[in-house]
């Protein structure tokens, strides 16, 4: 177990170092997420006022879209100089590699989401931070659910010809439940009278989904990636 975590950490560290040198993924994903929020602002503003209840949806859609961009990029990088083959040839547990990639992505996405959440709260005047910890928990669980499936699919598709098209095609149908739960839970938190019981129900469901998806992904990563 110790060695498993060590390998996962090494993969995270490698990804962070690559990212720290280029900052490519962080900046492109962040910029994309901000543009999505702005695009939605134009779509959901009537007579200078934001449509009520749109903010939760905008936050989560921005997370999903920018997450897809980051997921595609994270494994695209591994294709240069056949780095993926090197990674897979290493005499370590394959699921540890998966976990490493997943954690790297989660760190990146959490940075992006923090900025997006502040931006949405500012632009649409929603009290996201009234129950800040709840929102934090919900966003974290939602991102884990989304990224755990996404990391697996993105890794699976890395050798496929039409990967850029197929990633969203496969990813969204599978992760729609996570988005539904996230949006519903966030709406329960930010409405005029917060419904904490409802938020708790959605959080526990998100946790349930995360457990199923993460287990399935860890279990299938090895056979799926074997050539």
């Amino acid at each position: 177990m110790n060695r498993f975590l060590q390998v996962a950490w090494l993969v995270v560290w490698k990804d962070l170092r690559v990212e720290a040198r280029s900052k490519e993924m962080l900046f492109t994903t962040l910029f994309f997420a901000i543009s999505i929020v702005l695009v939605f602002s134009f779509g959901f503003v009537r007579a200078g006022q934001a449509v009520e209840g749109a903010a939760a949806g905008i936050l989560w859609i921005a997370m999903a879209f920018s997450g897809t961009l980051a997921l595609g990029r994270a494994f695209e990088r591994e294709r240069y100089h056949d780095a993926l083959r090197g990674l897979l040839l290493a005499p370590v547990d394959r699921p540890a590699i998966y976990l490493g990639k997943l954690v790297g992505l989660l760190l990146l996405l959490s940075l992006v989401e923090t900025v997006v959440a502040v931006l949405v709260a500012f632009l649409f005047g929603v009290p996201f931070f009234r129950h800040g910890w709840w929102l934090f928990l919900m966003l974290s669980l939602g991102t884990v659910g989304f990224a755990s499936v996404g990391t697996l699919f993105s890794a699976m598709l890395v050798r496929t010809r039409s990967r850029t098209v197929l990633l969203p095609v496969l990813l969204y149908p599978v992760t729609i439940p996570v988005l539904i739960m996230g949006v519903s839970g966030t709406t329960a938190l930010v409405q005029a009278e917060p419904d904490l019981a409802m938020a708790r129900l959605w959080i526990s469901l998100l946790f349930f989904f995360d457990t199923v998806f993460l287990t399935l992904a860890l279990w299938t990563f090895e056979p799926v990636m074997t050539e």
């Binding site: 697996l152 699919f153 039409s162 197929l166 056979p223």
Partner: peptide, 13 residues
């Protein structure tokens, strides 16, 4: 549209 090797990915899905 997955091309060669998509059978295993499809099995995951």
């Amino acid at each position: 549209y997955g091309g060669a090797g998509s059978d295993r990915l499809a099995a995951g899905l």
